[in-house]
Computed example of a mutant assay.
Amino acid sequence: MSIESGLEKKFARLGKDLTVTDGTEIAGYASYFGDTDQSGDVVQKGAYAVSLKALAADGRQVKMLWQHDPAQPIGIWDEVCEDARGLYVKGRLLEAVGRGREAAALIAAGAIDGLSIGYRTVKAAKNEKGQRLLMELELWEVSLVTFPMLPSARVGAKGESLMRADLRELAATFAGARRELARM
């Protein structure tokens, strides 16, 4: 067993297990127990229990971020819990936040299809295959991301289509980014 410190990130690409409805409501799994990710880590059942209990006792919640950027919260996780399969999350993208609208558009278009957890390892061990078994994690945040690490599933966007104004705003954002890159 080892005790490690520092914020780590674990990516998951989720398909039928992540749904988006009404353009902003998200529900699915941010982590699966027993699945080996691309770095050889395996989250064990119960790994989040202590952290989730401590967050609830302190009246705090797991943050919903854009690409693990603490300066870019994009929504609220209304429910974060462990079940037999993994870490289940349910929440809302905030339409009043620009990145929240962009995230909804990118998910609907299939350009973003990943979730990722930001955490600190509290307790881990190596198994006979050299995999790191993550037994206790301090969960900080769950992000929508471009590049996931757990390839076992993909995001599926469902719900109402985006309004044309939202698409125009997104196109303008991309055009501005292209102009900025061209000046570099």
Rank of each mutant, 00 (worst) to 15 (best):
R13Q: 12
R13A: 14
K16L: 08
T21Y: 01
T24R: 13
T24V: 15
E25P: 03
A27T: 14
A27I: 10
Y32V: 05
D35S: 09
T36W: 00
T36Q: 14
D37A: 10
S39P: 01
S39C: 06
G40T: 07
G40R: 10
G40D: 07
D41Q: 13
V42A: 04
V43N: 09
V43A: 12
Q44T: 04
K45H: 10
G46P: 05
Y48G: 00
A49Y: 02
A49V: 10
L52V: 12
L52A: 09
L52G: 10
L55P: 03
L55T: 08
A56F: 03
A56G: 04
A57H: 08
A57V: 02
D58A: 15
D58K: 14
D58H: 06
G59F: 02
Q61I: 01
Q61A: 12
Q61R: 15
V62C: 06
K63R: 13
M64H: 06
L65V: 08
L65W: 14
W66V: 00
Q67E: 01
H68A: 10
H68K: 09
P70C: 03
A71T: 07
Q72I: 12
Q72E: 14
P73C: 07
G75F: 07
I76P: 00
W77T: 07
D78W: 01
E79F: 09
V80P: 09
C81M: 11
C81S: 06
C81D: 03
E82M: 07
R85G: 00
G86Y: 14
G86H: 12
G86M: 14
G86K: 10
L87D: 13
Y88R: 08
Y88Q: 06
V89N: 08
V89Q: 10
K90C: 12
K90T: 12
R92F: 13
R92P: 03
L93M: 09
L94V: 03
L94P: 01
E95G: 07
E95M: 12
A96L: 01
A96P: 00
V97D: 11
G100H: 07
R101M: 12
A103V: 08
A104D: 09
A105S: 10
I107T: 02
I107R: 02
A108H: 11
A108Y: 14
A109L: 15
A109N: 03
A109Q: 10
A111W: 07
I112C: 01
I112D: 00
D113T: 10
D113M: 02
G114C: 11
L115F: 08
S116D: 04
S116G: 11
I117Q: 04
I117A: 11
I117G: 05
G118D: 15
Y119D: 01
Y119W: 01
R120S: 09
R120N: 02
T121F: 01
V122G: 03
K123M: 03
A124Q: 13
A125M: 06
K126I: 02
K126G: 01
E128T: 01
K129E: 13
G130L: 01
G130C: 02
Q131E: 15
Q131N: 14
R132P: 00
L134V: 05
E138D: 13
E138M: 05
L139E: 13
L139Y: 07
L139R: 00
L139D: 13
E141N: 09
